[in-house]
Computed example of a mutant assay.
Amino acid sequence: MIKVLIAEDMHMVRGALVALLKLESDIEVVAEVSSGNEIMPAARTHHPDVAVIDIDLPGKDGLTAAAEIHEQLPEVRTLILTSLGRPGTLRRAMAARVSGFLLKDAPADKLANAIRGVAVGRRVVDGDLALAAWDSAECPLTAREIEVLRMAEEGANAVEIAAFLYLSTGTVRNYLTTIVNKLNARNRVDAIRIAKEAGWL
């Protein structure tokens, strides 16, 4: 029996996933959580074989939680379930060492089969998305530039970003100018849009 933990914040979607998996004779849902912060405690308590995790969760995001599971509970495989079918998102998921990556609009039987594949140690990735990621450009931004842009996306100004990252305000402004130039964006807002659409944020 494959023991599964489901992490999905939308109650109706989570209920549908549980109902679908209950139809499978070899899969048992042992835990359901609605936020990223609940994933590790639930995984430690219930010892699932596979954690099916939505990327966009309140609290800790799904990829951060998946990376933590990989580090602290390597025997638990992770399958990311998302509506964000962007190549950059898949790249981030692979960097977090997830075992599988599936789009939410995939047919129901694909989910059960993906769980089975991941449980036996296979890497399961949506085929079309894998091809798109292969063809897409690498993120031109450094880790620090992404950090600055993410804070800007959250509404922080240059002074606030500088204080948080222990940088000078001038350095942060230089980072923002470099980011805009690297992404061929019109301004900071446009740079955030481009990075989000590419899945880099």
Rank of each mutant, 00 (worst) to 15 (best):
Gly62Thr: 01
Pro41Ile: 00
Val33Ala: 02
Asp109Tyr: 13
Ser99Lys: 05
Asp109Pro: 05
Ser99His: 13
Asp56Arg: 13
Arg123Lys: 14
Lys60Val: 12
Ile115Met: 09
Ala132Ile: 08
Gly121Pro: 11
Gly62Asp: 02
Ser99Thr: 04
Ala65Asp: 02
Pro87Ile: 06
Pro107Leu: 02
Leu103Ser: 10
Leu73Lys: 06
Ala119Thr: 02
Arg77Met: 07
Phe101Asn: 03
Arg122Trp: 09
Thr45Leu: 14
Arg92Glu: 08
Gly127Met: 14
Met94Gly: 00
Leu73Ala: 04
His46Ser: 13
Ala119His: 10
Ile53Glu: 06
Arg86Gln: 15
Ala130Lys: 15
Ala51Ser: 13
Leu103Phe: 09
Glu71Val: 07
Ala133Pro: 10
Gly62Leu: 03
Pro74Gln: 05
Arg86His: 15
Pro87Glu: 07
Asp105Lys: 07
Gly117Phe: 10
Thr45Ser: 11
Asp49Ala: 12
Ala96Ser: 13
Asp54Tyr: 05
Ala93Phe: 08
Gly36Pro: 07
Gln72Phe: 07
Arg44Cys: 09
Val124Pro: 09
Arg92Leu: 09
Ala119Asp: 01
Glu71Phe: 02
Ile53Val: 15
Val33Ser: 04
Lys60Tyr: 00
Gly85Leu: 12
Leu90Pro: 12
Val124Glu: 15
Thr78Asp: 01
Lys110Ile: 09
Glu75Gly: 05
Leu103Tyr: 06
Phe101Ser: 03
